[in-house]
Amino acid sequence: MSQSKKIFVNIDKCLGCHTCEIECAIAHSNTKDLLTAISETPLPQYRINTEYFEGENIPFQCRHCEDAPCVTVCPTEAITRKEGEIIVSIDEEKCIGCMMCIQVCPFGVLKSSRENGVVTKCDLCIERLNEGKNPACVEACPTNALSFLTEVEMSKKRREEAGKKILAAFRRGSSAVKEETSF
């Protein structure tokens, strides 16, 4: 089944708790359990980073860009996206660890693997998706700042949110007009 959903972020809801990072590392560990994952060698790595800028928390994760600079720049074609798929993935066998992708990524979400120096990144929790689950970060977020939707669903959600605000403004406006004309 081709995957058509992406991770969307509502920055207003992010409390900066770093739970997404912890759960990402667990999802990419061998044992899949926090209490044992922290003793694995090498330590599992998370592929999402919550940063703090100018008073706001922002979770950064791979956007799986349509025209992905990392895919374009990779000299060994290690980073690719399969025809018609969303996920930009890395073939560890082909990666030579030149870090060109890290230089060109507009979001800074690629990193060097502790295990073997190749590049590692968000794989949208492909293992979990195959089990019918959401990505670990989305599932874990206690405030639902992260959601896993198609862009159509996301646009619809944005319109609904905007619609509520517009309606509220209109209603306030029209009741103000009524109050004035009742004099």
Binding site: C17, H18, T19, I22, E23, I26, L34, L35, I38, E139, A140, P142
Partner: peptide
């Protein structure tokens, strides 16, 4: 679930 990893540790 999942309960806070920092708290659990």
């Amino acid at each position: 679930q999942p309960q806070c990893g920092f708290g659990l540790l």
